[in-house]
């Protein structure tokens, strides 16, 4: 439908124009507001891209366990609260081509003595997958080979069912044991923080010591900066998955 009009609509009208300096002032004000809005957005964007703070992911809760050391004394996960703990899993039957992580643990034992963890104690725990059903003398002889300082490095084991629950269900390591006592497993080293949270898993091969040391340092830095404004920055690093890569 067409509409006709005897009075054509004016295409232009005369209005008074604001002074040029007022228009310019308006634009500047809007520009200022936009800039103010853009700053936090830019900051968030830059944080997500540049990742100025790196953290280790909070993977999951480490399992609770009640195992024993090689002297038969109870060794509980409760004893490890407040400590950084590096676990590895092996067997006295582990010979080449089986990858035994105990050599790496021995090197770590020496290096953590000089490592700055901000006063956080570090404990190494080697879980012997052979279980308490194995000959205790064999287990003790294996541990003795590595010259472990009991203040820093513990060897623990448990009955087979308890091990299977804690190691398989808790740490996620599948392993098999033959009737002859031979244990087959894939190498796994795990880092757990003082709150019992699993923070790093070095799978399939022996871990690079430099990565383990870096990861201990990252946790120490996070603990050191866990309060106040810096605590918020570290939470933001978790939010934006600013995770250290390997």
């Amino acid at each position: 439908m067409s509409v006709s009009s005897s009075q054509p609509a004016p295409s232009h009208r005369e209005v008074s124009s604001p002074p040029a300096h007022e228009t310019w002032g308006h634009r500047r004000l809007i520009g200022l507001w936009l800039a103010l809005l853009a700053i936090p957005l830019l900051a968030v964007g830059l944080f997500a891209v540049l990742q100025p703070v790196q953290v280790l992911p909070r993977i999951g809760l480490a399992p609770g366990f009640l195992w024993s050391d090689l002297n038969g004394q109870t060794f509980s996960s409760e004893l490890l609260r407040g400590k950084l703990v590096i676990y590895n899993f092996t067997s006295v039957t582990c010979t080449a081509p089986c990858l035994d992580g105990s050599a790496t643990m021995q090197q770590l034992q020496d290096r953590i003595a000089t490592l700055d963890t901000g006063g956080l104690p570090v404990t190494l725990v080697t879980v012997l997958l052979d279980g308490t059903e194995s000959d205790p003398a064999l287990l003790r002889a294996y541990a003795a080979r590595w010259k472990a300082d009991p203040e820093r490095w513990q060897f623990v084991t448990a009955p087979a069912d308890s091990l299977k629950q804690g190691v398989g269900g808790g740490f996620g390591l599948y392993y098999t044991a033959t009737a002859a006592g031979e244990v087959t497993f894939a190498p796994l080293t795990v880092l757990v923080d003082g709150n019992g949270i699993l923070r790093a898993q070095y799978k399939r091969t022996l871990p690079d010591l430099a990565f383990v040391e870096r990861d201990l340092g990252l946790i120490a830095a996070e603990v050191r900066n866990s309060s106040g404004a810096s605590g918020l920055v570290y939470e933001a690093a978790h939010l934006f998955a600013c995770y250290a890569s390997y």
């Binding site: 936090p40 957005l41 968030v44 997500a48 992911p57 909070r58 993977i59 999951g60 809760l61 709150n195 949270i197 699993l198 605590g231 918020l232 939470e235 933001a236 978790h238 939010l239 934006f240």
Partner: peptide, 25 residues
């Protein structure tokens, strides 16, 4: 909106007495 969504957790008061676990699994 994206900035607001991202900043929202920061605006929440952090737990003062509990340990934050916030795990993925």
């Amino acid at each position: 909106l994206a900035g607001g969504w991202a900043a929202w957790p920061w605006l929440q008061p952090a737990p003062q007495h509990a340990v934050v676990l916030n795990t993925r699994q």
